[in-house]
Design a binder for these strands. Structure first.
Lengths: 354, 354
DNA sequence: TTGAAAGCGCTAACAG
DNA sequence: CTGTTAGCGCTTTCAA
């Protein structure tokens, strides 16, 4: 093989740590170990099939050469890439985005442990599905993780129709017929946790500031507050408000509620709204955590920075990632296994505001 | 070809939008269009070589079949994956992380336009280079983008020694001999911009609160403040402080500076420190923006949420991504072209605090 | 247990 | 301008 002459010549003068111009192949390892290529392949993929001494010799050659199987070749052969695609939206400022970023970190970490990598892609400006379509048809990824299952977007049903493997972070709100695996965080449980926390501290008039009614997630979070209040036989009349997710809205809403309903505590659908509440309290010379308690949602970057620190509901995104990867592994297993949806419970990060 | 019989049978009863069990190949398109496989390949990669009518026929077949070249096969053949690897650190809370997340978004967006995808990977807990090594040896990515070029980490020199194509977001602080392409944001220019902004407003005693001396980035940012002050012949004696990057440190440092040196404005190395300054002002009944001006750095999520809004230096991460991708394209071009480092200038987002 | 042969789907080189 | 041939590096039959 003249190729090997070239390769040997190319490798000789180089530093041990430097990668040769063209990486070693299965054949190189085989020659070095004095076995056939398939034996090397088996050493990697089915070590049990080899005699221990053969395995050791092959392993030695692999280490010496710094061999790692060529992905493209392996992908072509096995029809799988060990890549998981995930679309990320534009870098809009805001809490929702930050939550997704936190999730991406967890996902990358978890997929690594499962032998997968995460391929990020951006939405095409025009068609929301083109990115998925291309990756799917070119068999560039084995599966997708989708995240925004609300706002009635077409991803889930589109992928399902295509029989593309995917796991959703977010329950299929509007699709009871959906059969795909999903993982979600129980927002209602989170706000119930927050509300109970306040009730345990002796508050009886706990107000809610949430999002507009068309937000499924917002209504879900609101229901947890309602449930906790009613669970103790407390009235919620006049204690709720539905507004835009901005600081100004939270500020206005809390001012209004304080005037009209005299709550001693607020549970909010987001940290943004909670910051608005803190501002109202400051406006009025009230001390958060002493005079009025406040709890936010998402435990965002701002929560520890407010004065006092903002108590906030925290989504267990690390656990979400773990469950997503589990579902992914089931989906890509032989035979494919799709379990039921997984619902996780958030925790409460208690700080000075409550 | 018995395979085609199977395929046709499989495709017939399916919905047009549903992906056939096994995606169409070049051969399928070729047969459909009545040309050879090579012609289809040319239609995709070198359309100029085809006669217009042939091209149209092939294109038609491609569209009808929903054909997209198999990535693995193409990667194997061309020895390139059109994937760019980027390592992300653990999801620690904090501004630095948020900046990186913003950058990732921009990078994904920009690479998409260049026909690349971003492959994210996590650091192995033990060895910082294993992730790079594996991806490199398995030829899973064409190049890397590295981000933390400070803290004397080994990535840059390691990759350079391996002759692995990579672009750094961050100048090679400690390696004047480095020859790799890099893109960075001129922190000194940012703080100079901030300082000049304050000086233009009539301030003469502008204080600096920055990081400890071992931070290259911190010292760079500090130098911009120094330069701007000295540029107007103003003294900086007693006006600077170097502390940890925490709210508490910013609060303490600003309190101390106010007592000792009576500054009327603060420029900070981070938004975190600036939040600390705001807290001191609130403690003392001073109004930020009216009594004392404050400017932060990074224009993080908290900046618009503080009361009043925090003026902050903003890194042009979108532009960084564009330059990084440009450098990447040069690096991966034929022949590879490596240009000089690119230094970008930040902007100032002015809010109520100044 | 190990080895030989075949082929995944594509593109580069050349021949027509 | 189009078609033929070869082979990228790997894994999966099937034999030995």
């Amino acid at each position: 093989m003249s190729r090997d002459v070239t390769r040997a010549a190319a490798r000789l003068p180089s530093l041990p740590a430097r990668l040769p111009a063209t990486p070693p192949t299965l054949a190189d390892v085989a020659e070095r170990a004095g076995v056939s290529r398939q034996t090397v392949s088996n050493a990697i993929n089915n070590p049990d099939l080899l005699r221990p001494d053969t395995l050791a010799r092959v392993q030695g050659a692999i280490d010496e050469l710094g061999y790692s199987p060529n992905r493209a070749a392996r992908n072509l052969r096995t029809r799988s890439s060990h890549l998981v695609g995930m679309r990320i939206g534009p870098a809009q400022e805001g809490t929702a985005n930050a939550t997704m970023d936190r999730f991406v970190h967890s996902l990358v970490e978890t997929t690594r442990e499962a032998g997968y990598h995460v391929l990020l892609f951006a939405a095409e400006p025009d068609d929301p599905m083109t990115g998925y379509d291309d990756l799917l048809r070119s068999t560039a990824v084995d599966a997708f993780v989708i995240t925004d299952t609300y706002l009635g977007n077409p991803q889930a049903s589109w992928l399902e129709q295509r029989r593309a493997p995917f796991v959703a972070f977010g329950r299929p709100w509007d699709q009871p017929e959906a059969r795909h695996p999903w993982v979600d965080v129980d927002g209602a449980a989170g706000t119930a946790l927050a509300t109970d926390h306040l009730l345990d501290k002796g508050h009886t008039r706990v107000a809610w500031i949430g999002w507009r009614k068309d937000s499924r997630i917002g209504e879900d979070r609101r229901s947890g507050w309602l449930r906790a209040m009613h669970g103790r036989g407390l009235s919620t009349t006049g204690l709720a408000s539905r507004v835009e997710d901005t600081v100004a809205s939270g500020r206005d809403a809390s001012a209004h509620l304080l005037d009209e309903a005299q709550p001693s505590a607020f549970v909010c659908a987001s940290d943004t709204l909670a910051v608005g509440v803190l501002r109202t309290l400051a406006d009025r010379g009230l001390v958060a955590g002493r005079d009025v308690a406040v709890v936010g949602f998402d435990d965002s970057q701002v929560a520890p920075l407010t004065q006092p620190g903002l108590t906030s509901v925290r989504q267990p995104l690390e656990d979400v990632a773990v469950e997503v990867v589990k579902a992914l592994e089931g989906l890509l297993g032989h035979p494919p296994a799709v379990g039921p949806g997984v619902m996780l419970t958030p925790t409460l990060t208690v700080r000075g505001s409550s």
